[in-house]
Every structure is written in C-alpha cells, then in structure tokens.
Amino acid sequence: MDRRGFLKSTLIASTAALAGSEAQADETQIPEEMVGVLVDTTRCIGCRACEVACGEQNGLLVPDVLNDGALESHRDTSDKQFMVVNKYETDKGNVFVKKQCMHCYQAGCAAACPTEAMHKNSQGPVTWDGDKCIGCRYCMISCPFDIPKFEYGEWNPKIVKCTLCFDRLEAGKKPACVEACPTDTLMFGSMVKNLEVARHRIYSHPDKYVHQIYGEHEAGGTAYIYLSAVPFDQLGFRTDLGRTPYPEYTREFLYAVPAVLFSVPAFLLGLNALTGNGKSDNEGDRDFDYSDDGEEQ
C-alpha cells in the first residue's frame, strides 16, 4: 500500500487531485490507521464530564458543570474551549450534542493555510503550529463547520481548536474527552471501524436511529461521526454542506495556475512579436522602445 507517500504529503490539494476521487467514491479508501470518534447522541446524558476533561487536559477553561447553567443556551466553541455540549429540545426529548472540530478527512482549513500551520496528521488529527501561523484567519473562512477560533484579545493571538488530543494519541492514549465519558457515548478508534460500528447500530436498531451517519459524507467525510434519534438539522448540524471535500473547490483553480504561468507569457510574447512586424514608428528616444527593435532599426 502506498500510504506513506500519501500521509507524508505536504500538498493536501494535490493529494486530493491524486486520491480525491477515489476517496469520494469509496470511503473504505480511508487508511486503517486514521483514527476518529463515534458520537452516539442517543446515549449522552449531558453530564459534560468531557468538557471538564478537555479543559483540564488542554489548560483551557474548566467549566463549573453543576452551577454554570451553560446548557440553557446554545454555545459555540470559543478561544477558551475546544469543545462544548449543547442541549436540544426535540420531539424525542432532550438531546445532548458534543461540538468540536470534526477533523475532516480532507480538511479545508489545512488546504487554506498558506504556511501549513494547520496540518492534517497521518493519524487523523488536524493540528495547529504557532511557529508557522501568520494569523490570516483563512482557516476560519474555509472551515465548513466554523471551528477554528482566534484570540482577538491577545497581542500574539493563537488559533484555538480541538487537536483530538494529539499528544495523548502519540503516547498511545485515548483523547481526554473519550476517556472521561461515563456512558460510552464517545467511542474512539479507527475511522473505518467506527463507521462499521455505526452502521451496525443502525442496522440492529432501525427504529431507534435516523438512517444517516453525520460525518460519513459531509464535507467529504470526517473523523468525528454522529448517530442520532432525530434528524440532524434539529440538532444544530448544517445539513447543506454537500459531499465534496472542501479542498476540491479550489483544486481546479490551483491546477490552472501553472498552466497559465507557462502559456500566457508565451502567448503574450507571440502577440507582441506579431504586432511589432513592420512597425518601426518609435520616434528616437520617446521612451517607447519597448523591445530591442526600436533601437536597432
């Protein structure tokens, strides 16, 4: 298997060009070793232990779960929190949904980054490198899920987003939120296997779940996938993102760039040569000797 070249690749867009269409057509092309998390929202009790664990693990805000009443409003991730749990009132009762970076298989933020500060790692997590980042915030524009957050109040701001606990993964551990979950809502593992488990759950309990796995196709597939008992648009998910991996949108443009860079100058030179023939009306030193023929004739 030629995974190595693929994983090492510095060019997300060009890998999209090489492997994109396969990946789109058949998600089993996703490498075995890429990890992700399956979130089964039917199991979540809204205890927010994951939020606490995340805050502690990453040195961010550790919420006072018992007293802060945060479930009363729909929160977004912020420059203080990698993840939040929100409560949605649906016709099947309250549903709690964890929100964080989806770690797209083909990440728009990573393709957008002009310095590769945003990087899709071979194991799956999308991480941010402060030594490279120039703070352009193009990742925020390009992320279909609006996940990267920016510290507007800092003189040396950082981009803040979930790293899928990359450091813990390196040490062979699970992400902090998964480990903290008391109800098995979160399941960590290979993306491919997670998808199989999710399909199996829908197949075994066809009345319990809606027959859709959010993240299977959205934005070309994500490492975080969700199961739900109610349609996903009732849970604050965007269902209009399409199946196209986001780097694909700029692929054709970037592909055209080298083509333009060699063909257009040649064309312009030819045009200049054509119009120049038989015209030697450059009067002396009128500064109009755009090419050498003005002086030689």
């Binding site: 060019l11 997300i12 867009a13 957008a112 980054c113 193009y138 443009f253």
Partner: peptide
C-alpha cells in the same frame, strides 16, 4: 512552510 495548496 510552503502551503502550496492555499490560494492565499
């Protein structure tokens, strides 16, 4: 740090 894939 060449982000070849980036329009920016």
């Amino acid at each position: 740090s060449f982000g070849f894939s980036s329009v920016l």
